[in-house]
Computed example of a mutant assay.
Amino acid sequence: MAELFGATVAMAFTSMLIGWIVRKLSSTGVFASRLVGLAIMLFIAPPIYIFASGGPYFQAFFAYSLGALLAGAIFYCLRQKEKDA
């Protein structure tokens, strides 16, 4: 449970950082840039975890994919609602 919580926090904050960089370089919105950050981190975070701990790749990928799913749900709930014009 603690590993899942740590993966969620790590995915949320690093994808927000990557999303901020993507948003500065392109014309995407906040929610879309954070999802791009999640997609990037989904394939970067497990190898970093493996090199640090020596665990199996599948376990790291599974934990970080659940973390990305939860972080995406958090981003979805916190997004600003578009107003009807």
Rank of each mutant, 00 (worst) to 15 (best):
E3V: 14
I50R: 06
V30Q: 06
A10F: 13
L69I: 14
T14I: 13
G37E: 03
S53I: 09
P46T: 03
L42I: 12
L38H: 02
A45M: 13
E3C: 10
F31W: 06
S65C: 08
S15F: 02
I21Y: 05
V30C: 06
L38P: 00
A68D: 02
G67I: 03
R23M: 07
F5R: 11
S33L: 01
A10P: 07
A73M: 12
R23Y: 01
R34I: 06
F13G: 12
G55I: 05
Y64R: 06
F51M: 14
E82H: 04
A85Q: 11
Y57H: 09
K83S: 12
S65G: 03
L42P: 04
V9F: 14
F5S: 14
K81T: 10
F43G: 11
L69R: 03
A63T: 08
F58I: 05
V36N: 03
K83Q: 11
E3G: 15
A7N: 01
P56W: 00
A60I: 01
A7P: 02
Y49I: 02
I48P: 09
T8W: 04
L4K: 02
L78T: 09
A10Y: 09
I40V: 10
S53G: 14
K24P: 04
I44R: 07
K24R: 14
Q59D: 11
L35W: 01
K24M: 13
L35H: 03
S15T: 09
T14M: 15
L66M: 12
F13R: 10
A12E: 06
A10I: 13
R79S: 09
A71L: 04
L17T: 15
G54K: 08
R23L: 03
V30M: 10
S33Y: 07
Y76P: 01
E82G: 07
G6H: 08
T14W: 12
I21W: 11
K83D: 10
S15P: 02
E3R: 15
A63P: 00
A52T: 13
I18Q: 04
Q59F: 08
R23T: 01
I50Y: 06
Y49R: 09
L42S: 07
F62K: 08
S53F: 13
R79I: 00
A73Y: 07
Y49C: 04
Y57C: 03
